[in-house]
Design a protein around this nucleic acid. Structure first.
Lengths: 195, 195
DNA sequence: GAATATACTGAACGTTCGTTAAATAAATTA
DNA sequence: TAATTTATTTAACGAACGTTCAGTATATTC
């Protein structure tokens, strides 16, 4: 039987990323439990068993998607904040980058935002480590804000994260942009008399 | 005939509520997809098939849990706000009641808070209706706050709901109480917007 | 060009899933 | 108490699940 896929077979890393993209897409839409291995394989035009050539299990596949999501959103935020000097501007830029990753077709970031790992399963414990790695960045930004008690900083962080990640539930493309949303949300908290 | 059935109903309702409790418990811990019918039956010390004597399907069972959750949290909030007069105090009392339902062993409310329905499946469309019914109350409270633009009201609502519902991810019993958390979170906005 | 390593398929495995149907126990009504 | 309705179990169904594995192409190496 002749195959139509004889030429130009992609390289390993490229192929991995293709499959990882399909997985991110499915997991972002359906979550870990409802997103099946067969869904992912079908989205990548591949047999379910093929995934196991690259990934050890559904869990490790999900973890890789999660890690890639953290990596992307982290990079995006790091890049955004360097152009800002004042602490509140830095925080707003970070929030804008966070939302842009989240709301504009980056399935990896959506998985990170929508999957809040809890419990003591081995997978979730590993996911929590990845997530904390990202949240540390925000903690640092908030810590530099002037005139706030430690308690206020803690609550600001929890409230801000909650508000930002909840945008996936009501964001509508074409209306307010991620940057505008970030500006409005951070503005709700922003103290007027800083610097 | 009709009177006969009416006599049998209280027992029926009582049993229904027991099974509904088991379902709420499981759905709150595992979510709709990962919480299986067998999990629920086992939590209620009953065979899986018994559930189908009272509920048509897993979906309608979930919907009933969701509706009961909305009913409870709504009642709790309605009761809390009547003791307050000033708009910001009303909002804070509503937030406190919301968090108390959410964080203190009411599995029904947890299901409501953690399940944000989206998509166009028939079930999710029905869930959205129930949820909107609840959120309308908060919209009314926020609408009465003085000196806010309509845009600010909209963003305040989204941000506040996001911040409140995210507490399930970090709340630790024994530390700050739901009332205290509500006071602090509403306070973050209040200090900015309350002139 | 033969040997080897890589990419992928096809078929099946054991489990779990939601759900149904028939049989039976318990409660209620007549 | 007999008849009937309600509650629950036992057993199984087909479908979907994650995963495995032997086999088959394709690409790379010698």
């Amino acid at each position: 039987m002749l195959s139509n896929r004889t030429v130009g077979r992609p390289r390993l890393e490229h192929r991995r990323l293709e499959l990882l993209n399909a997985a991110a897409n499915v997991f972002a839409r359906k979550g870990f439990d409802a997103g099946s291995v067969r869904d992912i394989a079908s989205a990548a035009n591949v047999q379910p068993s093929s995934l196991y050539h690259f990934f050890g299990s559904k869990e490790t596949l999900f973890e890789e998607v999660y890690m890639e999501g953290v990596r992307r959103i982290k990079t995006s935020v790091e890049t955004a904040v360097v152009t800002q000097g004042r602490p509140w501007d830095k925080l707003e830029a970070a929030a804008a980058a966070h939302l842009t990753s989240l709301l504009e077709d980056d399935f990896f970031s959506v998985v990170v935002a929508e999957t809040i790992p809890k419990g003591t399963s081995e997978l979730n414990i590993r996911l929590i480590v990845h997530r904390n790695d990202y949240e540390k960045m925000f903690i640092a930004f908030i810590d530099r804000l002037p005139n706030l008690t430690n308690d206020n900083k803690k609550y600001l962080r929890f409230a801000l994260f909650g508000a930002l990640n909840a945008t996936v539930n009501w964001y509508q493309p074409g209306k307010d942009s991620p940057e505008e949303i970030a500006r409005r949300i951070v503005g709700l908290f922003r103290v007027q008399l800083d610097t």
